[in-house]
């Protein structure tokens, strides 16, 4: 028998991926409104990209046609909240505090609450898939400030951006 290694072997990549994907899936599934809008999340490491596939029900101006401002606002706000919740969940999953295979609506961390949200509409939303990424500019114990950018065909040509403040859930209740 060979000698026991000094350092534990790194986990197989599939195990790591499976754990992280399971955590993300559980988190997004816990927000019915995200499912209603068809919003999904692509993950690269800890980086998330939100995707809202085009659907006729998201239209607000049938003449152009263009996405409804409310659909766009909803997309950006869902992206911001999932990003905030994800960063916290990531830490808890990777530290082993929470088991990703055992996540459900009861033991998921509580969701941040929106205090205010300001949306800039830069150009009309085309009838195609939309993408968004959120950047947490400040995350304190109680409050967080998040900026979200959304685009369609071209990453450099944003069709909307938003900034919001959020009240973070307190773990000790």
């Amino acid at each position: 028998m060979s000698k026991a290694p000094k350092h534990p072997r790194p986990e197989p990549v599939q195990v790591v991926k499976q754990r992280r994907d399971a955590a993300l899936t559980a988190l997004v599934a816990a927000v019915p409104y995200a499912g209603f809008l068809g919003i999904g999340f692509d993950r690269r490491g800890d980086e998330l990209t939100a995707v809202m596939p085009y659907s006729e029900k998201l239209i607000g101006n049938p003449v152009l046609p263009a996405l409804h401002g409310g659909a766009t606002a909803s997309f950006l706000e869902v992206t911001a909240i999932i990003e905030l919740a994800w960063v916290r969940l990531w830490q808890e999953i990777e530290s082993g505090e929470l088991d990703a295979d055992d996540l459900n609506a009861e033991n998921l961390p509580r969701m941040p609450k929106t205090i205010d949200f300001t949306i800039d509409y830069l150009r009309s939303g085309l009838p195609r898939d939309a993408y968004a990424r959120a950047r947490i500019n400040r995350s304190g114990r109680r409050y967080a400030s998040v900026h979200v950018e959304a685009w369609q065909d071209n990453r450099q040509r944003l069709f909307a951006q938003a900034t919001g403040h959020f009240l973070m859930p307190q773990n000790d209740g």
Binding site: V31, P32, Y33, G69, A73, S74, L76, V78, A105
Partner: peptide, 21 residues
């Protein structure tokens, strides 16, 4: 379908935003 927080059953802010818009 508009629920944002299943723990409380509260409607997602985005839906309120859509109504306001």
């Amino acid at each position: 379908r508009l629920i944002g927080d299943p723990g409380t059953g509260v409607v997602h802010g985005g839906a309120v935003s859509a109504l306001m818009d």
